[in-house]
């Protein structure tokens, strides 16, 4: 059973993620809505996979990954955002994000990201 953390300031986006998450995939899903809550929640549950929105108030999703990687997290990071500027993609790739998916989220996009992690 994989532990997944979804980080997005939008409650709608988190709800859409749960709606589209494949029911057959063995996982528990936890949520965080900000940089601070993501760092705290990741410290508590030690997630295997973290889905990160980019554009959040204050620090963005890449900042969350950078902090967690710096503190020794072994989670796989997946960026999901509508803001796929080349500069954002470059930052995510430089940090070793496993997959980048474009919002709006669909079941197919989540499945494609999960396949990269557990083929």
């Amino acid at each position: 059973m994989k532990k997944i953390l979804v980080v997005d300031d939008s409650a709608t986006s988190r709800l859409l993620f749960r709606m589209h998450f494949p029911k057959e995939y063995p996982a528990t899903i936890e949520e965080a809505n900000s940089y601070d809550s993501a760092i705290a929640r990741a410290g508590e549950i030690r997630p295997d996979i973290i889905f990160l929105d980019y554009n959040m108030p204050g620090k963005n999703g890449i900042d969350v990954a950078r902090t967690l990687i710096g503190s020794g997290s072994s989670a796989k990071f997946i960026l999901f955002s509508a803001n796929l500027q080349q500069g954002v993609l470059d930052d995510a790739q430089a940090l070793g994000f496993t997959k980048i998916i474009e919002k709006p989220i669909t079941k197919e996009k989540i499945v494609s990201a999960l396949k990269v992690i557990t083929p």
Partner: peptide
Amino acid sequence: YEHEAMMEIGNIVISACISTIAN
């Protein structure tokens, strides 16, 4: 959720447009 959904619609539409301009 009504307002939340509207913000997410706006975020996706505006971000898609602006990201494309930037790229």
